[in-house]
């Protein structure tokens, strides 16, 4: 079977004609397979959703229990038949429960990796490379300039800054699902035992991670109920990046704004966002890891989605690997 007959881009997302399902559709469809819980990949309103239990749980937390007509949990490594097409979920290492979806039919195997990273992360199952004919890769950081440093180094910068500026609150912007919990866990792994304060938008997901056995330590709401500004001097406060531009942030004493994202690799990004302490911590693969993964899958053809496709396509061409950009719409190529 030709790969393009097994999976092809449609306005609603990547579609499998023989299996009659979509992967990560961006609008409501009768049957959806979802790689992970980020809102641009996991949307509410589908007829049936097949995803890992943790992704289903996260969708339930975000959209309410009735986010889909019916749900089915896929265990990692277990092959499920959907209208005669074999699908298998494998860990993607992106956030808790995130998966690559392997679609195997008529002698052709395609792996749709969703978003993935290769670095060890205590809050997510580690990525497993899967041999395949076609590998569909994201390209969020698909330029040679993106090379993520070790996350422990970045957290070290944060902790040193709390020692240098003990009178200032350290506001760490981090996306509510995945990044926030990973950052908190890294802070704990660095030996920081004081309470970490969190914005209300993070509470449900942090509770969920803790209930899944990921220890985040002493978390407290970042509210100043009758307290004084000085209560947060030297404290680490984690919240969604949007909150820090808001009045919410003004309650803290002379805050230092930090932002945990792969985008912080580019100085101008940090500068334009008024970020004083950029923390280059990403849940996506960096350039070197994208290349390494492409080689490891042994795929003879690479399809590139959301991000900076042209550089990755160029690199594949130089290596003699067929590659094309899929031009799927609706995914945030900036989210990290």
């Amino acid at each position: 079977m030709r790969p393009r007959d097994l999976l092809c881009p449609k306005p609603a997302g990547l579609y499998c004609p023989p299996g009659d399902f979509y992967i990560d559709p961006v609008r409501p469809v009768p049957r959806a397979l979802v790689t992970h819980g980020h809102s641009d990949h996991a949307r509410a309103g589908h007829g049936a959703v097949l995803a890992t239990q943790q992704t289903l749980d996260i969708m339930g937390l975000r959209y309410g229990e009735d986010f889909a007509g019916s749900t089915q949990a896929a265990a990692f490594g277990e092959t499920i038949q959907v209208n005669g097409v074999d699908v298998t979920f494998h860990p993607a290492g992106h956030v808790l429960g995130s998966a690559q979806i392997c679609v195997d039919h008529g002698g052709t195997r395609i792996v749709a990796s969703g978003d993935y990273k290769r670095r060890p992360d205590a809050t997510s199952q580690p990525f497993e490379p899967i041999r395949c004919d076609v590998f569909i890769t994201e390209a969020t950081f698909g330029l040679p300039v993106f090379r993520h440093p070790p996350d422990t180094h970045e957290i070290g910068k944060l902790i040193r800054s709390t020692e240098q500026f003990p009178e200032r609150a350290h506001l760490v912007g981090a996306y509510a699902l995945g990044k926030a919990q990973r950052v908190i866990r890294l802070i704990r792994d660095a030996g920081y035992e004081r309470p970490v304060f969190i914005h209300g938008a993070l509470a449900k997901l942090c509770d969920y991670y803790q209930s899944e056995g990921i220890d985040l330590g002493d978390l407290r709401p970042a509210t100043v109920e009758g307290g004084a500004k000085g209560d947060f001097a030297g404290a680490i406060v984690v919240g969604p990046p949007s909150a820090f531009a808001d009045r919410w942030a003004r309650r803290f004493p002379d805050p230092i704004s930090a932002f945990a994202s792969g985008w912080m690799r580019i100085r101008q990004r940090a500068k334009q966002g008024g970020v004083e302490l950029p923390l280059i911590i990403s849940d996506h693969s960096d350039w070197d890891e994208l290349l390494e993964t492409i080689v490891e899958t042994g795929a003879s053809e690479i399809w590139v989605t959301h991000g900076r496709e042209e550089a990755l396509v160029r690199w594949c061409e130089l290596q003699g690997i067929a590659a094309k950009a899929l031009h799927l719409v609706g995914y945030e190529d900036e989210g990290d």
Partner: peptide, 24 residues
Amino acid sequence: RMDPVLFGYSYDYVGDLAETVSLV
């Protein structure tokens, strides 16, 4: 030391020569 086309994409994106070279 690297493909000039990939360097070009990189430099266009970053916009600062010193920073681009340090990264790539």
